[in-house]
Design a protein around this nucleic acid. Structure first.
Lengths: 171, 171
DNA sequence: GTCCTTCCTCAAGTAAGGTTTAGGTCAAGG
DNA sequence: CCTTGACCTAAACCTTACTTGAGGAAGGAC
């Protein structure tokens, strides 16, 4: 059976069990350029141990909250043609460490603001520190804002009479 | 023009400028049950100030990393038929505070493990603390795992000869 | 009466990250 | 020889959170 590690290479099913990835996910990752297994004469994918390590890295990085594009970029930084060394992985890990710190700082800032808001109950678009669009740093996702650099605040300032007057719960 | 707050209700365009949401997003949120504006005789949506506050809450909760389904659930907890009070919002905010704390704890755990891994370079599926599937608590997203409770470790244990022997970089 | 703006609905498109399905190939075992 | 199990491709489908486009109607301004 093709299930075992043979001669020079691992079949996709083995890699799938090994990594916990589904076979379809591994094929998808190949399409996305995250791994590049060889092929045998029958056209079947042949993986090396280095590929398994790349896939492990993908799983880990995903758990850290990174998208496939970012992960691919990180993997592309690995020297081509040679098996990545411990130092290569360590460099990647340090990069991720920095990103995690940034994420945590953003969350901490958000939490502190939320603490300020608890008991205030304002939820005012003018006054709420959480909503305040200035601190881009704390942004977690993209959200439904106008994408084309067309700030609603800017847009509002040109339209005349509508100028709203504060929106707290306290009114 | 329909741009201003009139008699008893705000038009969608005003709400859009006010909240920074796009008109299409607001209509989408209505479909999703996040707001339920009334209609005038012409069939146009008529929003109240309470709707604007609901939408503000949606924006804030999204920044905190919650999905629309979770946000709808939170909003559904608001008493029907009456304008939400400061206490209502405060309860919601406290719930979010707890979720943020959980997220931060997860990230902190992950960061500590990553620190342990920097310099080790193993990226071993057997040994890497980051990859270790036991600590479900730190999970950030869903990932490409087998969904049907079909653990790869469990599956591996039944298949005979393939039993892999450790996958570190150090081999 | 006609124009412009804002509004309406419904359908389809987008991006990410995969899964599912349909149809086909290859090597080993009985 | 024929079946079985693992593998292959291509394309369709899924979810979330929206946007975009087509085609149309209401209502104030001139």
């Amino acid at each position: 059976m093709g299930l075992s590690k043979n001669a020079r290479g691992l079949p996709i099913g083995w890699v799938a069990e090994r990594t916990g990835l589904s076979v379809s996910a591994i094929r998808f990752y190949e399409e996305e350029g995250l791994v590049s297994p060889g092929r045998d004469r029958g056209g079947r994918r042949v993986f090396q141990r280095a590929d398994v390590r790349r896939l492990s890295f993908v799983l880990i990085a995903q758990r850290l909250g990174f998208g496939l594009a970012e992960i691919r970029a990180a993997l592309d930084a690995l020297p081509e043609g040679r098996t990545p060394t411990r130092d290569d992985w360590t460099r990647l890990a340090e990069g991720f460490r920095a990103r995690i710190d940034a994420r945590m700082a953003g969350l901490a800032a958000l939490r502190d603001k939320l603490d300020g808001c608890i008991g205030c109950g304002c939820l005012s678009l003018d006054r709420c520190a959480i909503y305040n669009p200035e601190d881009t740093a704390a942004r977690l996702g993209e959200g439904p804002r106008y994408v084309m650099g067309d700030s609603p605040r800017a847009a509002r300032d040109k339209g005349g009479q509508g100028q709203p007057e504060g929106e707290g719960l306290d009114e």
